[in-house]
């Protein structure tokens, strides 16, 4: 299945702004992020804890199972003030 991903986290993931990733049926958000990391040559372990996700306009944890055609937005988690 294909997942549309929009990245708003270029400071830690890389320069990618958006991409479409092919993942197996039943894949979760973490699996898509692994595919993105593989493509970008980055290590998911380095940054996964700094990210938060929005699936089709609803916030979703990393273990959320996705469906074909989902739109995934990847944001940096930020608490700073």
């Amino acid at each position: 299945m294909k997942i549309n991903v929009h990245f708003y986290c270029s400071r830690i993931v890389g320069k990618a702004r958006e991409g479409e990733y092919e993942v197996p049926e039943g894949a979760d958000i973490a699996a898509v992020m692994q595919a993105a990391a593989d493509e970008n040559g980055t290590f998911i372990e380095d940054y996964m804890k700094y990210l938060t996700f929005v699936r089709n306009s609803k916030a979703a944890p990393a273990d959320t199972v996705l469906s074909d055609g989902d739109r995934l937005t990847v944001l940096m988690q930020a608490y700073g003030g």
Partner: peptide, 24 residues
Amino acid sequence: LLEALFAGGGTGAEKILGNLPFTA
């Protein structure tokens, strides 16, 4: 919405990126 966005827990990226004056 805030609860949902924070539900995954995690660490604020400011821990590695800092907090700049013009950003604040």
